[in-house]
Nucleic acid binder design. Structure first.
Lengths: 202, 202
DNA sequence: AACTATAAAGCAAGCGCTTGCTTGATTAAC
DNA sequence: GTTAATCAAGCAAGCGCTTGCTTTATAGTT
């Protein structure tokens, strides 16, 4: 295996620093130190600081899109797609936490053109979810409700993972996905109305 | 009603700009323009740029704490507290979107001491939710599950509202809270097992 | 194996500009 | 007549990025 190219090391440094301190809070000189070169030398590999931001935000966008396509081709039933979509989403957030963080937060710092590129990938990702949810409702497997709120329920929970997840902690991404799916699909309320309990006992 | 003091106008300018472009992405000169003075004149009212950040992040923290205390004193049953807590939380995020955004995002830019102040208020807020959830479980009204994930479910959904809510849009904060509560409490899955449907028809 | 040609990569220095903040004089309010 | 607020001007430091030059790695020729 070839050792990582210098460009990769610079990207890794920027990824870490942007995700930790934000784009505007990170200087070219800090990235250079973390990559082990002088700041001027960065420009043999990149064109601008914003280039780095775009590349990292795009990594995030692509990771989510890739995950959605994989789920869609592997599973057919809408409920399977929602469950596995949630799992895949959480896996991206947890395993590519830095890129995901930059994707969620720092795209505002991009120039208009590049922001549009990221925005359009975000939109395409949402379309997958909208489709899964509407198919689930059509089949009677998902509660009849405003699909927008169903989507927001699932994605809010999955997105927020980047705020608290720490690698090597108590829970793996799989654990997290399972816990959330159980709660989101069945609700945080008690299992079933009292009448149903009676039925079970009868 | 007295017109807003100059300090208030400076705070309002900083609140808007910090929430839109981030702390590091906002300059003292921009705040001054928005407040209608020259940048030097700001320093008759503030001690430093970071003072502004702290004050705004603290507004957010206090708004959430205040809301939780109000819910706790007005409602006794855990499920009521959870439902009304969700509603109150979403109201804060929507009505004080700028402070909430700064509270969620920009506290990283604070000095250690001040970050700890904000962090401890965040912790105190979480204690309310943890208590409500555990009481709900003890009473058999909330599904037996890891309380941490129940809390994260509710708060993730409510927090993420700041990412998409636009004042004057299709939904009021009350609408949003109601939609989410229905979905979170009952689940996004179909209403009930088939056996219960039969019972209903009997 | 030794020498040279070429290009990639790194360095020290510093460019023009912006940053947060300070200063000393001036104005306005009571 | 005192005090607080505002101004124009500017400070030191740091910003993203460029420059001119040197080092290092690779390839081809002998």
């Amino acid at each position: 295996m070839p050792r990582p190219s210098q460009k990769d090391q610079i990207l890794a440094a920027a990824r870490r620093l942007f995700s930790e301190k934000g784009y505007h809070g990170t200087t070219i000189r800090e990235i250079a130190v973390e990559a082990g070169v002088l700041s001027g030398s960065l420009y043999a590999h990149i064109e601008s600081k914003e280039d780095l931001l775009f590349e990292i935000a795009d990594e995030g966008a692509e990771a989510f899109l890739l995950a959605a396509r994989a789920v869609e081709s592997k599973w057919q039933h809408p409920v399977d797609r929602l469950r596995e979509g949630l799992r895949a989403h959480i896996r991206v957030v947890a395993d590519q936490q830095e890129s995901a963080k930059v994707f969620f937060h720092e795209w505002r710092a991009l120039s208009d053109d590049r922001r549009k590129v990221i925005q359009s990938k975000r939109d395409r990702y949402e379309v997958h979810w909208r489709r899964w949810i509407e198919e689930g409702m059509a089949q009677g497997a998902v509660r009849e409700a405003d699909p927008k709120f169903v989507r927001l329920c699932l994605l809010s929970v999955a997105n927020w993972v980047y705020q608290w997840y720490r690698p090597g902690g108590e829970f793996t991404p799989e654990d997290i996905a399972e816990h959330f799916w159980t709660l989101l699909f069945n609700g945080i309320g008690v299992d079933r109305p009292a009448a149903c309990e009676l039925l079970g006992e009868a």
